[in-house]
Structure formats: structure tokens, C-alpha cells
Design a protein around this nucleic acid. Structure first.
Lengths: 341, 341
DNA sequence: CTTAGCACTCTAACTGCGAGAGTGCTAACA
DNA sequence: TGTTAGCACTCTCGCAGTTAGAGTGCTAAG
């Protein structure tokens, strides 16, 4: 059986009515509220077909229908239009992001907050990874009691630090090590440094403090993998605004799951490519997230993809609007964090 | 009417039975489970008195009693014993904290996580303020396109950074500025620097880059006020494990309230002194937190009070145990972050 | 192919009722 | 005088039965 035009329109009607009212939608409602030009009986037949194709489900015999994961998928792929945010939404975004221009971290945090407020959903973000950022300086700052603070600073303004015990290393040796490291690496991207073999060959040169190489290596890796602020979660309480989470146990399950950084990482990694994408219900292959959908987009820093933001809500989500907002916000982030250069 | 010994024991019995079972406790239960040596009828009389004094409440006529905020207060002040954590609890704490010794930030985060896991409550932390920490270095790192990264580094290992536009400043001038700043301030605590007037007088000396003084001033203030990681919240989903938050709206209310940093700050600021303290129900004067209690303690870094951790749960909380755990964890944090020096 | 009509199904909401728990009061007792 | 047993009373909770309403699938006619 094929999805002809009318079936698609019925599908669309079911999704949109259900998103709006959070209640199973019947043929009568569609006939009344959507101008399909056919009677409830006809719509009933179409709905029966759509159910047969696995796009709709019936909670029980005498209820209306609700979209299945597959149904939402069809809706997102073929029916939803990425909505241009309303003028007022747009103003909220611009207003929030234009207040402070410079700090990467706060721009991102504000964006995530704005997203969760506007969508009434929870928002996740993978912090920027500095893999493609250019190294500016590696600093070795001597501290009391034979410790050294190692700092890795990139041109984009990422700072990563770690303190290490370095017994019995004379100050001059530290300075030499710093000079050596910077001569070799300044101007390269973090990825290039990690990809090259210089770090290995430097290890011998560093004599007294060869373990410094390990520390620098660790810091560089952390920067490249997005360890700078790693993951941010905002608007967790929003999940409870939706009737599907009227039951505490469900809300708890989701929030508990998302308390694990590893899960956030896995979820965000399921997206590939730089465009808008959605993960609907069990598509995430994560039992605890079966009741949720994720919509995700990449944000850019200095023109390069730097990380990912994702809106998490009930499957019954206004995909068009959320995608529109996510697009707008990530683009705005890109612009704001580009102006700086 | 006075709180004689027997009334206190009845009070204690009510609190402990209610904490255990989450259900209003009746005279019969107390007579059976607590060895008071009197009959239910006598206990009934005592309970009526305690209700008259405002320490107990009755949800409805034919239910047992539950403690009022005032009742819990009496319990905490006069009846609860700060419990020595069980051997297994102790091992969990030691295990978690001994894994990584050096990073201040991760020690604190792990502590907060451990607390929320062991208590099944939500845990708040005010990040360490570096006011009493000794300044090691102020670094001015030149970046591309006439920007400078300003870094403030303390002996304790706190790093605070900010990027600023500094047009038309020659490299030598930057170096001079850095040398000047460090000569003046290295070795002083942040508070001392902020308290002194040197920063003002330096402003003239810094010529080309007098605004650097502003930035340094801003960073120092941020360090002193606990801006390093400011506030951490962990185990938010735990709040829903407790039957009093079976209703989503209640849980939502609390979590939404705690999403505001300002509220967390206000709540933690209500505690004073370094000892263990509790804030029960409406004692926090915060409508949204009326259903919750907070138990709080200070943690130390390098022997100096650095911040505060607080366990947030339902009023029906095992105060003795929570206080014991909080004490143990904060003390362990202090030890771990002292060994480093 | 579409539609009206109709019998059927299932849920949600309401009602009434009984069981159970706990109280306060009274009167007896040490 | 303080304590206790007994008892009538109250209130909630859970269960069963009933009803109203919504929505379906089927059939037959247009």
C-alpha cells in the first residue's frame, strides 16, 4: 500500500492535532478541524490503513489514534516544515545573545537556556571541542612545593589546565621545556599536534620532565574531545510540564538517565552530519529514552563545527517549531562567535 | 506546658517512625514498636498535647500524626544524634575520594555526587571561593587580532580566565604590564589584593592598557566570590524517589526553583557558621521550598573554609544519618585537599 | 469510491458501601 | 492523680457496579 496524498494529509492532521491536544484523535475531530473535504467515515478508513502500515496506534478500541514512532518519522521527513520562528521568538533569541558578545562559554550557556525556555523542553549541549582550534600557548607555571600548573591555551580562547607534581626540576629546565613545546606546536591545530609524532620525539628531549609530555598529551586530548566544558543540561524540570510525564516514575527515569554524562555523549553521538536531525522515541535505542524525542543541530565557532545542541522532549513534540528554533539559535551562536574574530 | 522526658520520647518516636514509613503514625504503632512502657491511650494523650504545642499535625481526624516543621526542629535540636556512618558508607566515601587526589574541581564534584547517591537526595554545592588563596601569577597571553587572554592563577590551583580586546598595545608593553602586576601582587591573597589600593594606583602606571586593570579586578572579584565553578547541583532526579513528591507538580516546582542560581545562592547564604545546620520546610522562607529541608556543612581547602555543601530532601528526612554523611564527606574533602600541600 | 447509520467496545467518572485505622472521651483502677 | 481499657465515632481507601461518552468497524446505499 502506498502513501497517497490524502493519507499523508490525514497523517499530518493526526500528528498536529495530537501535538496540540495531547489526546488520541478520532476521525470526527479531523473532519471537523482539518479541511480534507471528506467525511469521518472516509477518514476512518484511511486511519485504519495507516494503522495497518504501522504509522498510527490505538491505545484501546474506543479511543482515537496516536502516531507511532514510525508515524512521527514520516511526519518529520515528509510533512513537517521547519517553522520560521515568530517575530517575538526571534527577538528573545537576539536579545539573549547580544547582551554579552565575547565569552564563548556564556554565549553557549545562554543559548541552551533560551532553547529550553522557548521550547518547554530539556536541552542538552556538547561543549565545544577544540580539535580544530589553533594552539596559542602551552604555559608551565611553577607553583609551591614542586608542583607545576600546565595550561593549554588556544586562539579561540579555550583554556585547559592541570596541576602536576614535578619533583626536582630546576626552573630553567621548566622554561626550556615550555620553550621547546611552544616552538614545536604553536600555530598548529590540536588535531594536528595529536596526529603528528612530534610529541613522542619530544619526550626524549624533555629529560627531567618527560612526564610533562603525558600531561600535555592528556590536556590536548581533553580539548580535542570536547572536554572543555563537556556537557551542559538545562531546563530539566521542563520535562514535567508535559502530560506524558504526569507520572513521576517516567520523569524520574528520564532525568536519572540523563544524569549520566556517558548517556548524553552517546545520544549526541548518534547524530551525524551538520544539519537538523531528529531521533524519535525508540530510535535512540535507549530504553530509558523511549518516551522522548531529540532534535539536534550543530553550532559553529569561528566558522568551524564545534559542538552540538539538542532539544529533548516528549515524542509528541512540535517538531517544526523546535527545529526552527534550534536552527535559529545555532545560527545565531555561529554569528555571535564569529564576529569576535 | 513543658516538654518532659516522656513527651520528648514520644516526639522522637513519631519522627523516627514517620521518617521510616512515610505514613502518619498512630499511638498503637508507637506502643508496639518503641519501648516506652506505657499504653497507647497514654501515648494518645501525650500526642494530643504535642499537637497542642504545635509539634505534631493531623492530616485528618482518623489518621495518625506527622511532625510539623517545629516538631522536626525540636527533633533536630534536641533528639537527633549525628550518626556515625556505617562501615560500608564510609568505604564508599573513601573509595570515591581517594581515586583522584589532585584536581580540586573533580574532588568536589565527586563528593557532591557521592552525597546525593548515598542520601537519595539532591545535593547543592557552592563552588570554592579563592578569596583566601594566595596569588601565584597573573598571565597576559597575546592572541591574534589584538586580543589578550588574561589569566589569574592561585597557589591552590584555581584558574580564572577572560579574553579582552586590547587594540594597539605593543608586545613589550604587555610584558611590562604583566611584570608590574606580578611584582605587586604575587604572594598576596586575593582578598588582600582587592582590599589594598595598589590596583588603583597601578592603573596609572599601566598607561596603554589601563583597562587591563578593570579586567584583572573583575577576575579577582570573581575568584573571591566563588565564581570559579559557582554552583553545582547533583542528583536532581532523586527528589522524585520520595513519596511526598509522587505528585509531579510538586517535584517540578522544586526543581524549577532550584534551576535559578540566585535561589541556590540565597539558600546557601541562609546558613552561617561552619558547623552542621538544617533548614526545615518553611524555615527557608521560600515558598517553593516549603516541602523541603536542607542540611548544610562547610568544606575546607588547605585548612580554610572554601564553600558549602547542602543536602536537599523532603522534610521527612533521616536528619541524623544525613548530618553524619555530610560531616564525613566534608571532612574527607578537607583532608584530601590538604594532603596536596 | 464515498458516506450514513448502527451496533459494539472500551474508558473515565461517579456512586455507594464496607473494612480498617485511629482518635477522643469516659469510667475504672492503682 | 496518672494510667489504662473500652467504646462510639470519624475519616480514608479500595472495590464493585453503573452510566455516559467517544470512537470504531461494518454494512448497505448512494
Amino acid at each position: 500500500m502506498d502513501l497517497d496524498e490524502r493519507k499523508l494529509r490525514v497523517m499530518q492532521a493526526v500528528v498536529e492535532a495530537y501535538v496540540m491536544n495531547a489526546q488520541p484523535v478520532g476521525s470526527r475531530t479531523i473532519a471537523r478541524d482539518f479541511d480534507l473535504g471528506v467525511s469521518p467515515a472516509t477518514i476512518r478508513n484511511e486511519m485504519a490503513d495507516l494503522e495497518g502500515m504501522g504509522l498510527l496506534e490505538q491505545p484501546h478500541t474506543s479511543a482515537g489514534r496516536i502516531p507511532s514512532d514510525l508515524g512521527y518519522r514520516v511526519y518529520v521527513d515528509r510533512l513537517a516544515r521547519i517553522a520560521r520562528p515568530s517575530r517575538s521568538d526571534l527577538e528573545v533569541v537576539r536579545g539573549a545573545l547580544h547582551r554579552q558578545v565575547s565569552e564563548v562559554d556564556s554565549v553557549l550557556r545562554v543559548s541552551v537556556k533560551v532553547l529550553s525556555e522557548m521550547t518547554d523542553c530539556l536541552t542538552l549541549m556538547a561543549g565545544p571541542h577544540a580539535g580544530e582550534s589553533v594552539l596559542n600557548t602551552i604555559e608551565l607555571v611553577p607553583m609551591r612545593s614542586e608542583r607545576v600548573m600546565v595550561l593549554v591555551i588556544t586562539e579561540d580562547g579555550f583554556v585547559q589546565s592541570r596541576m602536576v607534581d614535578v619533583p626536582d626540576v630546576p626552573a630553567e629546565e621548566l622554561e626550556r621545556a615550555a620553550r621547546l613545546l611552544n616552538e614545536h606546536f604553536r600555530g598548529q591545530t590540536i588535531s594536528e599536534i595529536l596526529g603528528g609524532s612530534s610529541l613522542e620525539s619530544l619526550r626524549r628531549e624533555l629529560k627531567y620532565c618527560s612526564m610533562l609530555a603525558d600531561v600535555v598529551d592528556g590536556l590536548l586530548k581533553k580539548s580535542a574531545e570536547g572536554g572543555v566544558t563537556d556537557y551542559v543540561i538545562d531546563g530539566a524540570a521542563n520535562i514535567m510540564k508535559h502530560p506524558e510525564f504526569r507520572d513521576v516514575a517516567r520523569a524520574q527515569r528520564v532525568l536519572e538517565a540523563l544524569a549520566k554524562r556517558s548517556l548524553i555523549r552517546d545520544l549526541l553521538n548518534r547524530f551525524s552530519g551538520d544539519g537538523l536531525a531528529a531521533l524519535i522515541g525508540s530510535e535512540s535505542d535507549t530504553e530509558d529514552m523511549r518516551e522522548c524525542s531529540l532534535v539536534s543541530a550543530v553550532y559553529y565557532i569561528g566558522g568551524r563545527p564545534a559542538g552540538r545542541m539538542s532539544v529533548v522532549g516528549p515524542r509528541r513534540m512540535d517538531y517544526g517549531r523546535v527545529m526552527g528554533l534550534l536552527k535559529t539559535v545555532t545560527e545565531a551562536v555561529g554569528e555571535v562567535l564569529d564576529e569576535r574574530d
